[in-house]
Amino acid sequence: KELVLVLYDYQEKSPREVTVKKGDILTLLNSTNKDWWKVEVDDRQGFIPAAYLKKL
């Protein structure tokens, strides 16, 4: 499984997104879309802008 580091706080703006904090380490589920990556946060799955994440 691939992990990503959150570079900036992000507040979800729709039900398909998730809220994260800078410094969080998340499981990356899908990065095929270059703009929005799907991650897992506390048993929730959702999207975050790829620019907010860095692969570890």
Rank of each mutant, 00 (worst) to 15 (best):
K54R: 15
V41Q: 09
S31M: 08
K22G: 06
L7P: 00
L7Y: 02
P49M: 04
L7T: 04
K1S: 11
T32A: 13
I25H: 04
D35I: 15
G23D: 07
K1C: 13
W36H: 04
P15W: 09
K13D: 06
L29C: 07
V20F: 04
V6L: 02
L53K: 00
R16D: 12
V20K: 00
V4W: 06
Y52I: 14
P15D: 13
K38L: 15
E40I: 11
P49T: 01
K55I: 11
N30G: 07
I48E: 00
P15A: 12
A51T: 14
E40R: 11
Q45R: 11
L53V: 14
L53R: 00
K54Q: 14
A51H: 15
S31V: 06
I25P: 00
W37Y: 05
K38C: 12
E12M: 15
K21T: 10
D35R: 15
K38E: 15
D42N: 14
E17M: 05
T32R: 12
V39H: 00
D9Y: 04
Q11Y: 14
P49N: 04
Q45F: 08
L5C: 07
G46Q: 05
L53Y: 01
K38D: 03
K38R: 10
N33P: 05
W37L: 02
A50W: 02
V41T: 12
Y10C: 02
K38S: 09
E12A: 15
K34T: 12
V6S: 02
F47N: 04
Y52W: 07
Q45W: 09
P49G: 02
T19H: 04
E12F: 12
N30K: 07
L28V: 06
Y8C: 12
K34V: 12
E2A: 13
V39E: 00
K55G: 04
D42Q: 12
Q11F: 15
V41G: 07
K22A: 13
T19P: 02
G46T: 07
D42V: 12
Y8Q: 14
L28E: 01
Y8G: 07
E12L: 12
L53N: 01
R44I: 08
P15V: 09
E40H: 08
T19Q: 04
L56K: 03
A51K: 14
D9R: 03
L28C: 09
A50F: 03
S14P: 06
D24C: 08
L3Q: 11
K22P: 02
G46M: 10
A50Y: 03
L56A: 04
A51P: 09
L53T: 06
D9V: 02
V6A: 07
T27V: 15
V18T: 04
V41D: 07
R16T: 14
S31I: 06
Y10N: 01
P49I: 03
N33M: 10
K22F: 05
L53G: 06
L7S: 02
R44T: 06
D35F: 15
K38A: 10
E2M: 13
P15C: 09
R44C: 05
V18A: 05
V20E: 00
V39D: 00
D24A: 13
W37E: 00
W36G: 02
E40M: 11
V18C: 08
K13Q: 13
D42C: 12
E40P: 00
L56H: 05
K1V: 13
K22Q: 10
V4C: 11
I25K: 05
V6K: 00
K55L: 14
Y52T: 07
N30Q: 11
L56F: 09
D24N: 08
L26V: 13
K21E: 06
D35G: 10
K21P: 01
V41A: 11
K38P: 01
N33C: 11
L5K: 06
D43V: 09
A50G: 05
P49D: 02
E2F: 10
L53I: 07
L29F: 04
K34W: 09
E17K: 05
R16G: 15
Q11W: 14
D9W: 04
K34Q: 12
E2D: 11
K21W: 14
E17I: 03
Y10W: 09
L56Q: 05
V4N: 00
K38N: 06
K13V: 08
I48F: 02
L3S: 07
L26H: 10
K38W: 12
N33T: 06
D42E: 11
R44Y: 06
I25Y: 04
V20G: 05
Y52S: 07
I25D: 00
K54N: 06
L56W: 09
L3F: 15
V6G: 00
D9F: 03
L26M: 04
V4D: 00
K1D: 09
A50N: 03
A50V: 07
E12Q: 14
W37V: 02
D43C: 13
N30I: 07
Y10P: 01
L29W: 05
K54M: 15
D9Q: 04
N33W: 09
